[in-house]
């Protein structure tokens, strides 16, 4: 298992999990969202890449504001 922080909450996840897999396991939406890992954007085209132990993941979407 690996420990990953997603939007401020720690999760134990299977080693080898991908970005897309992480979103699915945590039941997060995949449309209208963007992902950053360790303060760098992970474009949708790279969501098949592996999430490493200790990663800080942020998943953002649009909300009313401004």
């Amino acid at each position: 298992m690996i420990t990953v922080t997603v939007n401020g909450e720690r999760h134990q996840l299977d080693r080898g999990i991908t970005v897309a897999g992480l979103l699915a396991v945590l039941d997060l939406p995949t449309e209208g969202v963007a992902v950053a890992i360790d303060a760098a954007v992970v474009p949708r085209a790279r969501w098949a890449s592996e999430v490493v132990d200790g990663a800080e993941v942020e998943v953002l979407s649009a909300v009313p504001g401004g």
């Binding site: 939007n7 401020g8 945590l26 039941d27 997060l28 939406p29 209208g32 969202v33 963007a34 942020e58 998943v59 953002l60 979407s61 649009a62 909300v63 009313p64 504001g65 401004g66």
Partner: peptide, 17 residues
């Protein structure tokens, strides 16, 4: 019209879009 970016709500989007 402006919108802000925030951590996604697992319970569902705001619907503003």
């Amino acid at each position: 019209t402006t919108v802000a970016m925030r951590r996604v709500d697992p319970a569902g989007g705001s619907g503003v879009l």
